[in-house]
Amino acid sequence: MTDAPLSAPQAGVGRSGRVALRLRAVSGTVIPVLAVIAALVGLWYLACIPMNAQQSVLLAERGGAEVSPATASERRDVGGIALSLRNPDPALALAFGQDRPVLPAPHQVAAELWGSTVGLRVTSKRSLVFHGWITLSATLAGFAVGTGLGILLAVGIVHSRVMDMSVMPWAIVSQTIPIIAIAPMIIVVLYSIGVQGLVPKAVISAYLSFFPVVVGMVKGLRSPDAMQLDLLRTYGASGAQTFWRLRLPASLPYLFASLKIGVAASLIGAIVGELPTGAVRGLGARLLAGSYYGQTVQIWSALFAAAILAALLVAIISGVERVLLRRMGLMR
């Protein structure tokens, strides 16, 4: 690709500027990103060899092969890298297909992920779609409530000086607190008064998404500058009109930035909410069960399912943001 600016003489010759822009974006980001991802996957495969070396060598020994420190107790003191260097053949051959590897290979995780989403009925207890939906429903319920309350509080803060001075410092301080520590207590307390299932997790999700939305929304509602506010005053606009026609539209870019943080926090809240009670359904429960029974492939696939879910949620919000802001002329 040439690096000539699009505005250069004859830049439009041959293909249109838009096509050139797309092509340049491809070579500008897509190729480096793919290279970095490929490097990460390569590193992952490479790391599998020493990480799984103990078990590979053990399997080879059981299969009747000669291994270098002959007994398992001697091998325990040898590091993974040294062990795979002394037994290169079994370490290489057996690293990527074990049942309970220390580090599963990427293709094992991908196969498990595929098998437990597409390969099973959605209602099956082992289907990640089923567990993902349990977590997602709590996330969405909590996110909706948290965002709604957050926006309401932000509107109150912007319009009332007392609320601003009383509540805003606490909202900011609360961002520095590991709120997630409250999660086990919320679960147990709500359980003891007879509430369980989706609601406690949604409460945690709502709580985690609440404060980012408040802080971002206050910033957004305050973003119109004095000139714009003065203009509306010269039009004789009422307070409500100023809010609906100026403050609210101006706050949207800030709101969407907060929503992206908030939805990721909500998902984390729902997952962590499944940990302390030993829940049997949901992605957090899959993580916990996997860690109890040493099912590493299951942990990794649940982790990736959670990551994909988070990425999808953020992508949906970004998509809505792009369409909405472009229609409103707030984004080029």
Binding site: P32, V33, V36, L288, A311, V314
Partner: peptide, 21 residues
């Protein structure tokens, strides 16, 4: 150019899930 999008993406993920591993 390769690492920045990947890093931005990773920063939004529920990394806390790596805890059991």
């Amino acid at each position: 150019r390769g690492l920045l999008p990947v890093g931005n993406f990773m920063a939004a993920l529920p990394i806390v899930g790596t805890a059991p591993i």
